[in-house]
């Protein structure tokens, strides 16, 4: 029972939130559920090809290739590839997590995977173009340049933060779930 509760605590929190919202202002409940439906639909529209690509990537790209391109000794080229993969993507970051896990499973360097996730979150090219049209070139690019530098530094620093135990756990997770 306790175990079940723990596993589903996220769902419990979600529905408790709906309950609280209903008490505070019940007119917002249908609005919220409508938003939820919209989000699920837009997710289902974009996510299937991403998962197909993740599956094909897992089946076709050998571990040696990933190690050579993005592994511990891939250096600047590995980072550049991580950037390109993150920048030429679409979809919410939640679709990037399983892809990142497959990368780890195939032997990609952790800093590169971290960088890939960070780029996916905010430096996707289609979004950057849209951002420029809305905020203007100089303001948008100032923000993006700063974040680009922060992401590189943060990704490289991540290797100082994580120890061998952490890496081993990631790899086990990736082998089981990925």
């Amino acid at each position: 029972m306790k175990q079940r509760l723990k596993q589903n605590r996220f769902a419990i929190i979600a529905f408790a939130l709906i309950g609280v919202l209903g008490i505070v202002d019940y007119t917002l409940v249908p609005v919220a559920l409508n938003n939820t439906l919209d989000q699920i639909i837009s997710m289902l529209l974009i996510v299937p090809p991403i998962f197909l690509l993740i599956g094909l990537f897992d089946a076709w790209v050998p571990r040696q290739t990933v190690i050579a391109l993005m592994g511990n000794d891939s250096g600047v080229r590995g980072m550049a590839l991580a950037f390109l993969l993150g920048a030429f993507s679409a979809g919410p970051i939640i679709a990037a997590f399983p892809l990142a896990l497959v990368m780890i499973k195939k032997g990609a360097r952790y800093a590169n995977v971290m960088f890939f996730l960070m780029v996916w979150s905010s430096l996707k090219l289609p979004i950057v173009f849209f951002q420029i049209t809305q905020l203007g070139f100089s303001f948008a690019m100032l923000i993006n340049t700063i974040m680009f530098v922060v992401f590189i530094a943060g990704a490289l620093l991540s290797e100082k933060v994580f120890n061998d135990d952490d890496y081993q756990r990631f790899e086990e997770k990736a082998a089981n779930e990925g």
Binding site: F10, I13, L17, L28, Q39, I40, M43, I94, P98, E177
Partner: peptide, 19 residues
Amino acid sequence: KLMPVLVPLFVIIGVLLAV
């Protein structure tokens, strides 16, 4: 595998967007 996390996540996002 993502689905069980996804549905409650979108409920939370729906509430956030409303509030």
